[in-house]
Simulated assay, not measured.
Amino acid sequence: MVHDISGLHHVGHIVHDMGQALEQYRRMGFALPGPAYPVVGEPPEPVGVGNTHAYFAGNFVELVAVAGAGRVPDDARLIPLRVPGDRLPVLKEAVRGTAANLESCLRRFEGVHILMFDSSDIDGGAARLAASGVGHGGVQVAQRPVETVDGVRMEPVRWLEIDGARRGLVPEGRVGLAENASAHDAADHPNGAVELVECVLCVADDELDEAEGRYTRYVGGAASRDGAARTFALGDGRARVTLVGASGLDGLLPGEGVAALPGFAAYSVAVRDVAATSRFLREAGVPVRESSAGEVFVPAREALGVAIIFRQAG
């Protein structure tokens, strides 16, 4: 594996209703702060998208909802976008474009549509992708609010999105690289989660070879094969991306499917004590199943369109 990909940066779970999603994620034992919504004008008008994060030491799971869809939770943080009046139409158009991309994903199904690889050298990654014939929108720079023990701080982030049939979108959603300038504080999750370690992409059986070729170019390394699964180990090997044909998904996650192909069917988080996590989920009334590898997972129908696997850390 090349040096510019070090692991998983985050997955993005796009939901219809942020309030409902927060309730479900907190019930599953994830600690999430109130979502941030950018607002403009007076009275404040939410625009673009609202989001919040389940933070781990080195990465996170993001919950995303289009502003205006569903209810704005009571603990939401409104972030004013302050720009000169003559720039306001341009800004609104930009955030509408972001929201339109996410709405197109949501029309396919509610679930995970964003996968960002963690990069320690995003400029090198951008050059490598271009040399491999992978189109992308170039390295972008922004700041995002991050919840810490000392309050909210603005953290710079640099990212790029890989282009497919549409700018910033490949068939399964938004895929790219991201590089943080500084680490964020990890939350203390009641379910014991400590790290995002896997994302599972399900594709049509006859498109598995094509998808493997794409991800070989995305991550700069080859997959290992184990039955129906094709797995790309990332960085030091703790994190991975797994591709599976539709006919093989049930063999990995019994009873699971994807509403539209290709689609991200599941993601995995490492936990301190998987037995304790299983007890926590059952006591909270969260239905769980067992994967073919003997791991506990929450089915997609209980987790708003994506199966969530809990894996023993280490």
Rank of each mutant, 00 (worst) to 15 (best):
V2F: 01
G7E: 01
G7N: 05
L8F: 12
H10D: 13
I14C: 10
Y25F: 15
R27V: 01
F30C: 10
G34D: 10
P35V: 09
V39G: 11
P44K: 04
E45A: 11
V47P: 12
T52G: 07
H53D: 01
N59G: 04
N59H: 04
E62C: 04
V64W: 05
R71H: 08
V72P: 02
R77D: 10
R82M: 14
V83G: 08
L91S: 03
A131C: 06
E147V: 06
G151V: 09
P156H: 02
L160V: 15
E161Q: 12
G164P: 08
H184G: 09
D185E: 15
D188V: 12
P190E: 11
N191D: 14
G192P: 01
L201T: 03
L208V: 07
G221K: 06
A222P: 13
A223E: 00
T231S: 13
T231F: 10
A233G: 13
V244R: 06
G245V: 13
A246W: 00
L253W: 12
P254V: 05
A259L: 03
A260W: 00
Y267Q: 03
R272T: 15
A276R: 12
A276T: 09
S278P: 00
R279V: 11
F280T: 10
A284L: 01
E290S: 14
P299F: 14
Q312L: 06
Q312N: 04
